Amino acid sequence: MANLIPVAKTVGSNKIVPTISIPYPLGDPSTSKEEQWKLRYHRVGVALDALTDDAKDQTVYKVKI
């Protein structure tokens, strides 16, 4: 999971799941607790799926915005 996708690509990460921001990678304090939970649940789910994916090249996984 990374919030600076270009940096993750430069250092050679092969599986990249975008996060929200530097101070709050998996949340947005301006939203409700329910919205934050949904956002975190989705992003962590994508990251877990990425771990089981057989990616040969650098892959940036799609997440809900």
Score class of each variant (00 low, 15 high):
Gly45Leu: 06
Ser13Ala: 14
Asn3Tyr: 15
Val63Pro: 01
Ile65Gln: 06
Asp53Phe: 09
Lys38Glu: 15
Met1Leu: 09
Lys33Asn: 12
Glu34Gln: 12
Gln36Ile: 05
Tyr61Glu: 07
Trp37Ser: 14
Gly45Ser: 11
Asn14Val: 12
Trp37Asn: 12
Glu34Lys: 13
Gly45Asn: 11
Pro6Thr: 02
His42Cys: 02
Glu34His: 04
Trp37Met: 12
Asn14Arg: 14
Pro29Asp: 05
Gln58Ala: 09
Leu39Trp: 01
Pro18Leu: 06
Leu51Gly: 10
Thr52Met: 15
Ser21Pro: 07
Val63Gln: 03
Ser30Thr: 15
Gly27Trp: 03
Val63Cys: 06
Lys62Arg: 07
Ile65Asn: 06
Lys56Thr: 11
Lys56Arg: 10
Val11Arg: 00
Pro29Arg: 05
Asp28Met: 09
Val46His: 00
Tyr24Gln: 13
Thr19Glu: 06
Val17Phe: 07
Glu35Gly: 00
Ala55Ile: 00
Arg43Thr: 14
Lys33Leu: 14
Gly27Asp: 11
Ala47Ser: 10
Lys33Gln: 13
Pro29Asn: 07
Asp49Asn: 12
Lys56Asn: 08
Lys64Asp: 14
Thr10Trp: 08
Ile65Gly: 03
Gly27Glu: 10
Ala8Phe: 09
Leu51Phe: 14
Leu26Pro: 06
His42Pro: 00
Val60Ala: 08
Met1Glu: 11
Gln36Glu: 13
Asp54Gly: 03
Asp28Cys: 06
Gly45Lys: 04
Thr10Gly: 04
Asp28Trp: 04
Pro23Leu: 07
Leu26Gly: 03
Ser21Lys: 01
Val7His: 13
Lys15Pro: 02
Thr10Asp: 08
Thr59Ala: 07
Ala50Lys: 09
Val7Trp: 13
Pro25Ala: 02
Asp28Thr: 07
Thr19Asp: 00
Arg43Leu: 14
Asn14Ala: 07
Ser13Pro: 00
Leu39Cys: 03
Asp49Leu: 11
Glu35Gln: 14
Glu35Pro: 00
Leu51Pro: 01
Val44Ala: 11
Gln58Asp: 07
Gly27Leu: 05
Pro29Met: 05
Ser13Lys: 05
Pro29Gln: 04
Asp49Glu: 14
Lys38Asn: 13
Asn14Trp: 03
Val44Arg: 06
Leu4Tyr: 13
Pro25His: 03
Ala55Thr: 06
Ser32His: 08
Asp28Asn: 15
Pro6Ala: 05
Asp54His: 11
Pro6Asp: 10
Leu4Glu: 10
Thr52Lys: 15
Ile5Val: 15
Val11His: 00
Ile22Tyr: 10
Ile22Arg: 07
Asp54Glu: 13
Thr31Arg: 15
Lys62Asp: 10
Thr19Ala: 08
Val60Ile: 15
Leu4His: 13
Thr10Glu: 10
Ser21Thr: 12
Arg40Met: 14
Thr31Trp: 12
Val44Gln: 05
Pro25Tyr: 01
Ser21Asp: 10
Arg43Ala: 07
Asp57Phe: 11
Asp54Val: 00
Gly12His: 00
Ser30Gly: 11
Asn3Val: 08
Arg40Asn: 09
